Amino acid sequence: TSIVNVSSSLNVRSSASTSSKVIGSLSGNTKVTIVGEEGAFYKIEYKGSHGYVAKEYI
């Protein structure tokens, strides 16, 4: 489990790309479970499925 480190919110994306669809967002200090990594993104558990967040904010 890791913590989201942002002051406002962090986009959760459908794939490991800044141009991919935003499927949701997480607020600062939210706990997330990392299940993998791809480039500059972590794959996380998100709403019963998976999403991707930028590593620099975790």
Rank of each mutant, 00 (worst) to 15 (best):
residue 37 E to Y: 06
residue 1 T to W: 03
residue 46 Y to W: 12
residue 30 T to L: 07
residue 18 T to D: 13
residue 28 G to E: 11
residue 28 G to V: 13
residue 52 Y to C: 03
residue 31 K to P: 12
residue 50 H to S: 06
residue 44 I to D: 02
residue 2 S to W: 10
residue 15 S to A: 13
residue 22 V to A: 06
residue 58 I to G: 03
residue 57 Y to A: 13
residue 31 K to H: 12
residue 38 E to Y: 08
residue 13 R to F: 15
residue 13 R to Q: 13
residue 52 Y to I: 00
residue 20 S to W: 03
residue 54 A to T: 05
residue 17 S to F: 05
residue 19 S to L: 10
residue 39 G to C: 06
residue 19 S to Q: 11
residue 6 V to I: 14
residue 55 K to E: 01
residue 20 S to P: 01
residue 16 A to G: 05
residue 20 S to K: 01
residue 30 T to K: 05
residue 50 H to Y: 15
residue 13 R to I: 05
residue 47 K to T: 04
residue 58 I to C: 06
residue 21 K to V: 10
residue 20 S to G: 14
residue 4 V to P: 07
residue 11 N to H: 14
residue 37 E to P: 02
residue 57 Y to I: 07
residue 38 E to V: 09
residue 20 S to L: 02
residue 39 G to N: 07
residue 8 S to Y: 09
residue 33 T to I: 13
residue 19 S to I: 08
residue 51 G to K: 01
residue 8 S to E: 10
residue 56 E to K: 12
residue 58 I to F: 13
residue 21 K to M: 12
residue 54 A to Q: 14
residue 52 Y to H: 01
residue 9 S to A: 12
residue 23 I to M: 07
residue 52 Y to R: 00
residue 43 K to F: 05
residue 25 S to Y: 14
residue 23 I to H: 02
residue 9 S to D: 10
residue 30 T to Y: 08
residue 48 G to L: 04
residue 14 S to H: 10
residue 51 G to D: 00
residue 57 Y to E: 15
residue 56 E to W: 07
residue 25 S to I: 15
residue 4 V to F: 05
residue 49 S to I: 12
residue 29 N to D: 09
residue 42 Y to L: 06
residue 40 A to T: 08
residue 21 K to L: 11
residue 6 V to D: 07
residue 4 V to S: 08
residue 43 K to L: 10
residue 11 N to Y: 11
residue 23 I to T: 02
residue 49 S to C: 08
residue 40 A to Q: 12
residue 7 S to E: 10
residue 12 V to E: 01
residue 12 V to C: 05
residue 26 L to G: 01
residue 7 S to F: 06
residue 56 E to C: 14
residue 55 K to P: 00
residue 26 L to E: 01
residue 16 A to C: 05
residue 1 T to G: 12
residue 32 V to T: 03
residue 54 A to D: 10
residue 7 S to K: 13
residue 30 T to C: 10
residue 9 S to T: 11
residue 53 V to E: 00
residue 5 N to K: 12
residue 19 S to F: 08
residue 5 N to Q: 11
residue 37 E to V: 09
residue 36 G to Q: 04
residue 20 S to E: 02
residue 29 N to Q: 10
residue 6 V to Q: 09
residue 30 T to F: 09
residue 45 E to Y: 07
residue 3 I to D: 07
residue 28 G to D: 08
residue 24 G to H: 03
residue 11 N to T: 13
residue 31 K to N: 10
residue 4 V to N: 08
residue 32 V to I: 11
residue 53 V to H: 00
residue 31 K to T: 12
residue 17 S to P: 00
residue 15 S to Q: 13
residue 19 S to G: 10
residue 54 A to H: 08
residue 4 V to T: 10
residue 23 I to E: 01
residue 18 T to E: 13
residue 5 N to V: 15
residue 21 K to G: 08
residue 14 S to Y: 09
residue 32 V to F: 07
residue 10 L to G: 06
residue 31 K to S: 11
residue 28 G to Y: 13
residue 41 F to H: 03
residue 58 I to P: 03
residue 26 L to F: 05
residue 45 E to S: 06
residue 52 Y to T: 00
residue 34 I to H: 00
residue 33 T to C: 12
residue 46 Y to G: 00
residue 2 S to V: 15
residue 3 I to M: 11
residue 6 V to T: 12
residue 10 L to W: 06
residue 33 T to M: 09
residue 9 S to H: 13
residue 49 S to T: 12
residue 54 A to C: 14
residue 31 K to Y: 13
residue 52 Y to E: 00
residue 41 F to M: 03
residue 12 V to Y: 00
residue 50 H to T: 10
residue 9 S to G: 12
residue 18 T to G: 10
residue 47 K to H: 09
residue 3 I to R: 11
residue 27 S to H: 11
residue 34 I to E: 00
residue 55 K to L: 03
residue 5 N to T: 14
residue 46 Y to T: 01
residue 3 I to L: 10
residue 58 I to V: 10
residue 52 Y to G: 00
residue 29 N to M: 12
residue 30 T to G: 06
residue 2 S to M: 15
residue 19 S to K: 11
residue 14 S to N: 08
residue 29 N to L: 12
residue 12 V to T: 01
residue 40 A to M: 10
residue 3 I to T: 11
residue 40 A to K: 10
residue 4 V to R: 08
residue 9 S to I: 13
residue 47 K to C: 14
residue 53 V to S: 00
residue 27 S to G: 10
residue 25 S to Q: 15
residue 12 V to M: 03
residue 25 S to D: 06
residue 40 A to W: 07
residue 40 A to R: 08
residue 48 G to H: 05
residue 47 K to L: 12
residue 39 G to E: 06
residue 30 T to P: 04
residue 35 V to T: 07
residue 45 E to Q: 09
residue 33 T to R: 12
residue 10 L to Q: 06
residue 23 I to W: 02
residue 43 K to R: 09
residue 41 F to G: 00
residue 25 S to A: 10
residue 30 T to W: 07
residue 48 G to T: 06
residue 25 S to R: 15
residue 9 S to C: 15
residue 42 Y to E: 02
residue 33 T to V: 14
residue 8 S to G: 15
residue 15 S to P: 01
residue 50 H to M: 08
residue 32 V to H: 02
residue 4 V to L: 08
residue 13 R to P: 01
residue 28 G to Q: 13
residue 45 E to F: 11
residue 53 V to L: 05
residue 20 S to R: 02
residue 31 K to F: 12
residue 36 G to C: 07
residue 23 I to C: 05
residue 46 Y to K: 00
residue 27 S to C: 14
residue 5 N to F: 06
residue 45 E to K: 08
residue 49 S to A: 12
residue 9 S to E: 12
residue 11 N to K: 14
residue 53 V to P: 00
residue 24 G to W: 05
residue 11 N to I: 15
residue 47 K to Y: 09
residue 8 S to Q: 12
residue 23 I to P: 00
residue 58 I to R: 03
residue 29 N to C: 15
residue 45 E to T: 06
residue 12 V to Q: 00
residue 37 E to A: 08
residue 53 V to A: 03
residue 55 K to R: 06
residue 45 E to A: 08
residue 50 H to C: 08
residue 55 K to W: 03
residue 44 I to C: 03
residue 1 T to S: 11
residue 49 S to V: 11
residue 55 K to N: 02
residue 10 L to D: 03
residue 53 V to D: 00
residue 12 V to K: 00
residue 57 Y to M: 11
residue 22 V to Q: 04
residue 7 S to N: 12
residue 6 V to M: 09
residue 53 V to T: 01
residue 16 A to H: 04
residue 8 S to M: 12
residue 27 S to L: 13
residue 10 L to M: 09
residue 31 K to M: 12
residue 36 G to I: 02
residue 13 R to M: 15
residue 36 G to A: 08
residue 45 E to P: 03
residue 48 G to N: 08
residue 24 G to Q: 02
residue 47 K to Q: 13
residue 27 S to N: 10
residue 39 G to Y: 04
residue 19 S to R: 11
residue 22 V to N: 03
residue 40 A to F: 08
residue 6 V to E: 07
residue 56 E to N: 07
residue 48 G to R: 04
residue 52 Y to A: 00
residue 11 N to M: 13
residue 26 L to T: 03
residue 35 V to I: 14
residue 30 T to V: 11
residue 19 S to W: 06
residue 23 I to N: 01
residue 7 S to G: 13
residue 54 A to N: 09
residue 50 H to K: 04
residue 14 S to K: 12
residue 35 V to D: 02
residue 20 S to Y: 05
residue 6 V to P: 09
residue 55 K to D: 00
residue 18 T to H: 15
residue 47 K to G: 12
residue 42 Y to H: 04
residue 26 L to D: 00
residue 41 F to D: 03
residue 57 Y to G: 12
residue 54 A to V: 08
residue 1 T to V: 14
residue 52 Y to P: 00
residue 38 E to F: 07
residue 32 V to L: 08
residue 3 I to A: 09
residue 26 L to S: 01
residue 11 N to W: 10
residue 20 S to Q: 02
residue 50 H to G: 04
residue 15 S to T: 09
residue 43 K to H: 04
residue 35 V to P: 00
residue 16 A to D: 02
residue 32 V to D: 00
residue 10 L to H: 06
residue 33 T to S: 07
residue 54 A to K: 14
residue 25 S to V: 15
residue 25 S to F: 14
residue 7 S to C: 15
residue 3 I to S: 09
residue 8 S to T: 14
residue 58 I to Y: 05
residue 30 T to E: 13
residue 13 R to W: 15
residue 33 T to E: 07
residue 28 G to P: 15
residue 54 A to L: 15
residue 17 S to C: 09
residue 40 A to H: 10
residue 29 N to A: 09
residue 7 S to R: 12
residue 10 L to T: 13
residue 42 Y to W: 10
residue 16 A to F: 03
residue 10 L to N: 05
residue 49 S to F: 09
residue 29 N to V: 07
residue 9 S to K: 13
residue 25 S to L: 14
residue 43 K to T: 04
residue 7 S to H: 13
residue 15 S to G: 13
residue 19 S to T: 13
residue 10 L to V: 15
residue 23 I to Q: 02
residue 39 G to D: 07
residue 51 G to H: 01
residue 24 G to C: 05
residue 22 V to S: 06
residue 12 V to P: 01
residue 16 A to V: 04
residue 18 T to I: 13
residue 57 Y to H: 13
residue 3 I to G: 10
residue 42 Y to D: 03
residue 16 A to R: 02
residue 49 S to D: 08
residue 27 S to W: 09
residue 54 A to P: 15
residue 17 S to M: 06
residue 35 V to Q: 04
residue 50 H to Q: 06
residue 34 I to N: 00
residue 26 L to W: 02
residue 5 N to R: 13
residue 46 Y to A: 01
residue 10 L to C: 15
residue 35 V to S: 04
residue 28 G to W: 13
residue 4 V to K: 08
residue 22 V to D: 03
residue 23 I to D: 01
residue 31 K to A: 11
